[in-house]
Design a protein around this nucleic acid. Sequence first.
DNA 1: CGAAGAATTGAGTCCTATCAAATGCCGTGG
DNA 2: CCACGGCATTTGATAGGACTCAATTCTTCG
Lengths: 240, 240
Amino acid sequence: MECHLAACGTGISQSNRCVGCEARRTGICACLSPGELLSLEAITRAVRFAAKETLFCQGQPAASLYTVTSGVVRLYKLLPDGRRQIVGFALPGDFLGLSMRAVFGVSADAVEAVEACRVPLAAFAELVDARPHLLRRLHDLAVQELALAQEQMLLLGRRTAEEKIICFLLGMQQRWVRAKRFSVTVPLPMSRQDIADFLGLTIETVSRTLNRLARDRTILIVPGGVRLINAERMARVAAA
Amino acid sequence: MECHLAACGTGISQSNRCVGCEARRTGICACLSPGELLSLEAITRAVRFAAKETLFCQGQPAASLYTVTSGVVRLYKLLPDGRRQIVGFALPGDFLGLSMRAVFGVSADAVEAVEACRVPLAAFAELVDARPHLLRRLHDLAVQELALAQEQMLLLGRRTAEEKIICFLLGMQQRWVRAKRFSVTVPLPMSRQDIADFLGLTIETVSRTLNRLARDRTILIVPGGVRLINAERMARVAAA
DNA sequence: CGAAGAATTGAGTCCTATCAAATGCCGTGG
DNA sequence: CCACGGCATTTGATAGGACTCAATTCTTCG
């Protein structure tokens, strides 16, 4: 991690920074040839955010785009009176700003310590213009995001608190498996409040539901996450 | 309308079918040159659906894509037990299937009588491959969809019943204004049940809230829609 | 060790759902 | 033309799930 960041300033180790990157398999990078990877690397800069630090705000000019390389980012919208809806969590490998729009549509801040690759929008736009298949990839990612959002709309509008929690846990498990090598334990770096704001619940309901599931021996609550004990029952509820 | 449909089978009037189309200003077509419009027209076929008729189903292979030219289509997801979440309404000019994916992620059926342009996915994919700026347009539309979905997530997760209804009415007004020339009256061709399933409410709550707003003289309920009397107050609630 | 924040737990309330019934709206057909 | 039937909508009464407020308890970390 340290060397990863140190590399960003040096010309020599630049050349293999991306190659060994965790996010290489996913995100934008997955569609790039080794040569193109170097082109991207050239305009990229590794940055780090502390927990709760803001990456960007809704309405702000989108000067830079990011690929998360470690840690978790929450994406959210706010109402003037303070009500918050988290529209997604970005895990390592996820790309932020695929809209390529002038301003950000959501706000983003670090749930925990986060490392990311920052790309100036202008430079990235040039790269995309030169490489149509990069645009294709961008579109695929946007469509994937949209499908996720629609699934979340179903969850927010039509599911009960217990179903919401269960779907959330199963969804996080899947995403962690895809991003890294987790399976027995599902990491939940975000707070209960974050989970509540993602699922359209209150912190108390999240806590109660989670602990009820633990009492039922459906899950086991461990520091920093949960272990899925009765994943079968959970899958049944989620499918319902 | 009749002649519009009749034209689809003939070679002669083909050549100006799209030019006079209502959807010309929006959707995919807006980014095409006259020549490209002809290319699209060549692979397009006008089709008509009766109210409640299905355009396509979630999970089905996406053989064709559609541009709605008249009428309203509802896009939705179902839970096995029958609960339904409408993820969006497609108005004239809206493009269905911008994912360019092998299978549909949602189901779609006609709210009222609908006319649409059907394009075989394969032929459309070819056209897109040949015209990068079409892909760009596709991506822009997808991003726009995503922004709408995120706004809807905020609504579903964090807004009260009254706010949901008000935001819905204002949103529909805006979209109708953009699509056609409505302003005083907002057309609501969909049923109360559709509105409920879009806003994550029950039909009774929709009816009660709508009628309360009418009693308050905030809106006026007219056959087939509503008239916004106190749009200012509505905007204030929506902003809140 | 102690303070501050996060999470849990409890009690009571409220908004929205549920259940049930009445009313209104249309198209159909006598 | 109007009675009829079916469906959509409205309205009323009641219940319940999630919220709110409030008080502990648990973590974390300086």
